[in-house]
Design a protein around this nucleic acid. Structure first.
Lengths: 103, 103
DNA sequence: TGACAATATATCAGATATGACATATATTTA
DNA sequence: TAAATATATGTCATATCTGATATATTGTCA
């Protein structure tokens, strides 16, 4: 299964459902990807609300600009761990993370 | 920071707060650990409700008994990705995962 | 008690994620 | 418009996570 391709499709407006069908993703896999994209999108929202650049956020996270971009664009190389830690580092509470997942 | 030690402490009834203080964990780190423990505990609850052994669950997850045990006991070597995928594989919805995080 | 099933813990080679860097492509601003 | 700033994408050496295996510990029941 080509995760890079799948990510590109999702980014370009494909609904998870259709991407799932097209790529033959399992329910678990597609739900997991959907979840990561939700949280990554949430991180971008948070960052822009705080008027931070990716470079500035990267510094806070002790990561790099490129990895922040990958978090926000749902790059398949990014772990849920990193996304969640990043949200927490920006002050997101567990309840807020839960809300983001439910949305 | 010794994650194995921290895990043992938490397991033995230390509250996150005190483990955090004792070990000098950052807010991000302690919240992240707390979250993993919550979801791991949730997985165990789900598994036992379904009357599955760790060996049986491992087979479903295409993992091993030892890794299932590590998920359930909050072993620091386990990623959030694996925990969430495992919950999803047991049929947990995103809303239910969100609920577990909020609790 | 002892045998047996279930769970926990330790270790490791291979797999995957990581920050860093280079560089491409937007996007903004003068 | 061009220059400056911000974001995206590709690659890689190193770090971390993985399933597997071995073995220890715990619980259960005759």
């Amino acid at each position: 299964m080509d995760k890079a391709k799948e990510k590109r499709l999702v980014k370009n407006g494909w609904k998870i459902g259709s991407a799932k069908e097209f790529l033959g993703l399992s329910d678990v896999e597609s739900s997991y990807i959907e979840l990561k994209i939700k949280l990554g999108t949430n991180l971008r929202k948070l960052r822009t609300e705080k008027n931070l650049t990716q470079v500035e956020l990267a510094k806070i996270l002790k990561s790099s600009q490129s990895r922040v971009a990958k978090i926000e664009t749902g790059d398949p190389s990014v772990s849920l761990d990193l996304i969640v830690r990043s949200l927490l580092a920006l002050g997101t509470s567990q309840k807020e993370i839960a809300r983001a997942i439910s949305s």
